[in-house]
Amino acid sequence: MSCRSLKMPCRLLVAVMLIGISSLALGHRMDHEIATAEAQVLSLSHPFGQQPVFVPYQIFAPDSEVAFQNGRTDALGRISFLPDRPGRWRVVVTTEDGHGLEVRVRVDEALAVTEVEGPPRNRLVNILAGVGYLLGLAGLLILWRKRKKAHAHP
């Protein structure tokens, strides 16, 4: 067999090897596609109106302990996600100083949000209620101790 007769098979062999190597490179490629969809947007804010920017959060799908999505709030303090199944979703936000927020979002079969549960919003009413409970408890305690003493010393 002469060198000339080996040229074409060699070229074919090199060509096949190059194609094989380039197919490995396909694994590093990332395709993309863009579509318009309606997302759920959770807007966060601090007590004085400023937004928590780039604060870490996790989103858990119904009955799942592994995060469905995690990331950081955007530059306007928002979290957006597209639930892909009905049920009770959890959005957990954690700040570095140990403050946090857990919001539970109930999604129906049509993937629409039907209920949102989070911390109470009406602070003033709840503060007044707390003061009332404390004073009321003290009043009950005073009454109880008076009756106890009255029974002990009739």
């Binding site: 707390g130 003061v131 404390l134 004073l135 408890l137 003290a138 009043g139 305690l141 005073i142 101790r145």
Partner: peptide, 10 residues
């Protein structure tokens, strides 16, 4: 002191 405790706790 209970009334005072209640007020200061509040």
């Amino acid at each position: 002191l209970i009334p005072r405790l209640a007020v200061l706790t509040a």
